[in-house]
Amino acid sequence: MAIFLTKESKVLVQGMTGAEGMKHTRRMLAAGTDVVGGVNPRKAGRSVDFDDRAVPVFGSVLDGMEATGADVTVVFVPPAFSKAAVMEAADAGIGLAVVITEGIPVHDSVAFHAYAERHGTRVIGPNCPGLITPGQANAGIIPADITKPGRIGLVSKSGTLTYQLMYELRDIGFSTCVGIGGDPVVGTTHIDCLAAFEADPDTELIVLIGEIGGDAEERAAAYVQESVSKPVVAYIAGFTAPEGRTMGHAGAIVSGSSGTAQAKKAALEAVGVRVGGTPTETAELVLERLAGPARPRTE
């Protein structure tokens, strides 16, 4: 069943005709994703050939949805145009917008998040690798050949750490992996994914990857205690990051005593979530947990 994305999902790509859009649309198709169209007002009516499939280009998200029944859009448009692209998708009433674009001004993302929320559109990202349901569909840039379908659900702020954990646990496989993005403001949160994985019968165990900055992991810990019965294993990056410096991700910055890796680890461990010291150790904890007797998490 997986979360947010299945083989039934019909996917539009905003910015499909750009270099990144072309490259990743080809990859998404190769992974079995039902990419039903691209969106570009200047190239409407044409189509783009990807190996054995011609994908039509629509003038707007609404046109694409009406013609194809699309319910997911993946946004590759440049930062200057991302706000308009997401708002257009929300206006059209699409269910899920996956915003891959990196470098969107925060005022723009604050605006499109508020707008999408009012229109009932779920946003994943921005500045994220997207999500993959192995064996079914891939919406974004996560490599599809790292692992296979399985029973682990994964939610992460970081792209490469997602890939690393998928690789370490490739023999077990994953239900869905969601990269929620490393920006200060993101649409779908760790908590949203925990809730969805908890409800997903295909997911047996949840891997949560966090990093310094903000308090999303602390809030996720509180949510795990209240509402998650499935085992959760976590990894946090950034124990050695200096205070007040941006560490690659716009959101990865420690301010004063808040947002530290130590605080996040402590909050998660306090509710019975095991936290690995390295990605490899985290994978070992997952294997241990899956091999052990199925018992409810003790508080």
Binding site: S156, K157, S158, G159, T160, L161, T162, Q164, G182, I209, E211, I212, Y235, A237, G238, F239, T240, A241, M247, G248, H249, A252, A261, G277, T278, P279
Partner: peptide, 17 residues
């Protein structure tokens, strides 16, 4: 040196470990 902010931060931690 690494690729991706998350992996580089993680690498710093593992080196420190």
């Amino acid at each position: 040196i690494g690729n991706g902010a998350g992996l580089v931060m993680s690498t710093l931690d593992v080196v420190a470990g």
